[in-house]
C-alpha cells in the first residue's frame, strides 16, 4: 500500500497522508529548505538542487514511520527518472574539461551515478534497505511501484521510499505492507512527477477549502 506521498516543485511542495494533516505550501528559499528536513544534515549545502528536493520530499513521508525522528525499521530506496544521471555527468565533465582535462572534482564525480542521490538520502535519513535505480521502458512509474511492493512483500525491506524525479518535480512515496484499517493512497492512472504533484496539490487544496 502507498501510505503517504510528498512532492517538491519549484513553486510549491506538500504532503498527502491519510494518517496525518496533509498540506501544501509555497516552496521556500534554498537557505530555508533544511527546516523541512527537520534534522541536521551534513553537507546539505553542497547537495544538488535535485538531491535537496528529493531529501525534502523523503523527509516528509518518512515521518509516517518515525514521528519522533527515530527510524526503527529497515527502509529501502528506489528511484526512477528518464534522465538517469546524464545532467550530473555533463556537469562533472564540463567542469573537468574547463579545468584543462587533467583533474576533475571529486565532489562532482561522486554524483555521476543514478544512485548518487539515493546514497545521500540514505545517509541523511538512516535508510539501510536496498538502494536501487530502476527505470522501465514501459509504464516506468507503475514498474517502480511494483518493484518496491515486491521488495516489501519478499521481506527485503520493511518499507520502501520511491523517488520519481525530473527537472521540474520530485515525488516521493512511502510504501509498506498492507496494514488492516490503515488508509492507503490511490494514484492517478498515469502522469509525470509534475502531473502527480499537481493532482495532489489540487486534492489537498480542495480538502482545505472544504474545511
Amino acid at each position: 500500500m502507498i501510505r503517504s506521498l510528498a512532492w517538491f516543485c519549484a513553486d510549491h511542495y506538500g504532503l498527502y497522508s491519510p494518517a496525518r494533516e496533509s498540506f501544501t505550501r509555497p516552496t521556500p528559499a534554498a537557505e530555508e529548505l533544511l527546516a523541512i528536513v527537520n534534522r541536521p544534515v551534513k553537507y546539505f549545502s553542497r547537495m544538488t538542487r535535485e538531491t535537496k528536493a528529493g531529501l525534502c520530499a523523503a523527509s516528509l513521508v518518512l515521518r509516517d514511520l518515525a514521528p519522533d525522528g527515530t527510524l526503527r525499521q529497515e527502509v529501502g530506496l528506489l528511484a526512477a527518472g528518464e534522465d538517469g544521471c546524464v545532467p550530473a555527468n555533463q556537469t562533472y565533465f564540463h567542469d573537468y574539461v574547463t579545468a584543462g582535462r587533467s583533474m576533475g572534482r571529486g565532489n562532482l564525480f561522486i554524483y555521476t551515478l543514478p544512485t548518487s542521490t539515493l546514497g545521500e538520502l540514505a545517509i541523511a535519513l538512516a535508510l539501510t534497505g536496498p538502494t536501487m535505480y530502476v527505470h522501465a521502458d514501459r509504464a516506468p512509474l507503475a514498474t517502480l511501484l511494483h518493484q518496491a511492493m515486491q521488495l516489501v512483500a519478499d521481506g527485503e525491506a520493511e518499507a520502501i521510499l520511491t523517488l520519481w524525479s525530473n527537472a521540474e518535480a520530485s515525488v516521493c512515496m512511502l510504501l509498506q505492507r498492507d496494514v488492516p484499517g490503515m488508509a492507503s493512497i490511490k494514484l492517478p492512472e498515469s502522469g509525470s512527477p509534475l502531473e502527480i504533484a499537481r493532482a495532489f496539490y489540487d486534492k489537498v487544496s480542495a480538502e482545505a477549502s472544504r474545511e
Binding site: V134, A136, D137, R138, T143
Partner: peptide, 9 residues
Amino acid sequence: GPGLVFSSA
C-alpha cells in the same frame, strides 16, 4: 517484452 534499466553503483 518489458525492459528495465537497473543501477546500483
